[in-house]
Design a protein around this nucleic acid. Structure first.
Lengths: 118, 118
DNA sequence: TGCCAAAGTATCATATTAGTAACTGGTAAC
DNA sequence: GTTACCAGTTACTAATATGATACTTTGGCA
């Protein structure tokens, strides 16, 4: 791991592009929550809307983005109501252990840093 | 790991607060780059400004935020020029293995998903 | 005296994100 | 035939993020 613009190796982009990819699929208020929610078991649109207090506009936008990034899949169910199912893809599922590590750091952080400030 | 608003356990906040903490200290265009840059060895303001193509206003803002979050420390060096040194704190250093895991996922993602789209 | 570098600040402009509220078109149950 | 549920869309607003550019203050040096 190198700050290559400092060390002059010239491979800065190939180093940061994968990092930016991950950040893109996890940042924002909702993506991590939705990934975890869907990760438990596949979900329908209104199921997620009720779960979290998210507006349909935002939910629709977030789901489209995650689908575009290849993190979730969208399947229309063939029932009388035109329900739609969202599930994690393989690469999307591989985000779960990363989010678990987030949790670990975050809990450590809250103990070490936030609590000592009070 | 539970989407508690779905399962009804009622500890949703205590689950998501640590996740939000981590996201807060890593999101945006610059924070991860600066953490890695400083992680290599402590850096001065203008050193970082030259390294990356970042405007002084943004650099100043990002550094202040990271300091406020307890991720980096700021020390004024006692030389004739009023130089300032930025270094990672302990909890800040613990972000490095997480960023390494980002890298790993990101490289995997680029192979599995991005390349097959071409 | 004039120029340079250090670490920022001030001002203004644009882009992105998140949100509310109202609405669409189809099905189905009462 | 009205009410409710399905998966969204449209229009508008507010807040936040990012950016370029010029300027400031302190001190060293020729």
């Amino acid at each position: 791991m190198t700050c290559t613009k400092c060390s002059g190796k010239g491979d800065c982009d190939s180093f940061f592009l994968p990092l930016d990819d991950l950040l893109r699929v996890l940042t924002g208020k909702w993506k991590m929550r939705l990934i975890l929610c869907i990760g438990m078991e596949s979900k329908r649109f209104n199921e997620m809307k009720r779960c979290h207090e998210i507006s349909p506009r935002i939910l629709s936008k977030e789901l489209k983005e995650l689908e575009m990034y290849g993190i979730i899949s969208r399947t229309e169910v063939n029932d009388s109501l035109k329900t739609v199912n969202y599930a994690l893809t393989d690469i999307g599922t591989e985000l779960i252990p990363i989010i678990v590590q987030f949790q670990k750091w975050g809990r450590d952080y809250r103990q070490k840093f936030l609590l000592q400030m009070k």
